[in-house]
Design a binder for these strands. Structure first.
Lengths: 238, 238
DNA sequence: CGACTGCTTGAGTCTGCTCAATAAAGGTGG
DNA sequence: CCACCTTTATTGAGCAGACTCAAGCAGTCG
């Protein structure tokens, strides 16, 4: 019941955050609690349900036969999970990063519900399109950006999702995923993530929280600049 | 008028190829002919229309401030272009690769039409989801695959779209885009594309058509194997 | 209080990039 | 039809960003 109350509270919070029209889905879904690394979906399994993140972070990923892994997206509270699956099977896997609460809805249930609430379908389409735009952005990161640029992009993305402004212009960005997972998201080795975070910390752009649990953005301007010219000399004039 | 006839013929061909329910859109669209590199959409512009490729190939791409470019997708005949845009502006650009015929439809027109043909909305959602799955696949390529693996994946993808089986097991794959564009799609330099194609040709997996206009897949099995273990030794036994 | 997991840091290697020179095709205009 | 010019592809040499392998160090949790 404690869990139920928490679930209900999260539901309300999400209802306001969620993409237009999607929040109502928690009304017909089931609250579920996941432990770290617990699986929500496995690539190739029958795609019978999708989910709405209530608290915590879910990683959607694909893997190669020899164990390399690429995280497709981190889903924060309010985000749909596995919504974009086209056919009858999941095209990617999804698992909890840390402890997670989700609201799970069966696809048949959504289909029925759509008949009663036609606007829902537009909400679904819009949510998938939003995910699509994010995927496009990440293709640019992975195909054409340096490690430093990717990290800067990543931190700014997380800041826009879960950043807590501090009044003094700084912004605290809690990161529940570990550096290996960040690497799997950015197409980098975890060692490179560590080195690059250290580098951003050394020049004062960010402060890395120890033990690693997030960062504080100290110089937003410089971080935004790093987004696109990671190789630019710090003191390079015109 | 000659053009109109060609347009109409293409329309029929596409109507059969197009994703479920989308083909009918050519009925309310306008046929348009594009010359090489002619622009269909520019990132940031008002997203007022989308398109259906009738013939030729369209490249959807994003670029950084300093000129690096990442091609998000190559759209073949039957594919929708700019369908996935979420907001009021395009999240990516699109241009013709070679000569292209498209069918352009305004978004307002689609909205009206959707009221008459409700199933269309499901077709749209499904088409976007299909694109999403393709984008996920490419994130894995860019984040975690070697140049050799990416090329193999790319050739197999093109083969499944436009490959012409030759009876002897070989498959002719015409490629209208140049090697720079393939590089921009795979996150590689054009020199790397050239070298890697040569390598695949040297070991007999493919034959590169000269002057470059496509490849012939000579050993499908080996190409599929290269997809996932590009670094595996050719003669490595257990 | 150990064992474990995750992070840091170093050394060396390698894949793929950059820069550059050459060659081959295709297009243009005389 | 041919000479010229531009664009695209090939190939080499050298470089560098990021990876791998490895050791050491917290911090956490039984």
């Amino acid at each position: 019941m404690g869990a139920a109350v928490i679930g209900a509270r999260s539901a309300w919070a999400v209802r306001e955050n969620a993409p237009a029209g999607l929040g109502i889905l928690d009304a017909i879904g089931v609250i579920r609690h996941l432990t770290p690394h617990e699986s929500l979906a496995v690539e190739g399994d029958a795609a019978d349900r999708f989910h709405l993140v209530m608290s915590g972070v879910v990683a959607a990923y694909k893997a190669t036969a020899d164990g390399r892994r690429q995280i497709i997206a981190f889903h924060f509270p309010g985000d749909p999970v596995c919504l974009s699956t086209a056919g009858t099977v999941y095209d990617h896997s999804a698992e909890a990063v840390g402890h997670v609460t989700v609201c799970s809805v069966s696809r048949t249930r959504v289909r029925e519900y759509t008949k009663q609430v036609p606007s829902l379908r537009h909400g679904l389409l819009d949510a998938v399109r939003r995910e699509m735009a994010a995927a496009h952005e990440r293709l640019l990161w992975l195909g054409r950006k340096t490690a430093l640029e990717r990290l800067a992009c990543f931190l700014l993305e997380c800041a826009s999702r879960v950043g807590e402004p501090q009044g003094n212009g700084h912004q605290v960005v809690p990161l529940p995923m570990n550096q290996q997972e960040i690497g799997d998201y950015l197409g980098l080795a975890s060692e490179t993530v560590s080195r690059t975070l250290t580098e951003l910390g050394r020049d004062g752009t960010i402060e890395v929280l120890r033990p690693f649990s997030g960062v504080v953005i100290r110089d937003m301007q410089r971080l935004e600049a790093t987004t696109d010219e990671g190789t630019l000399q710090p003191a390079a004039g015109p």
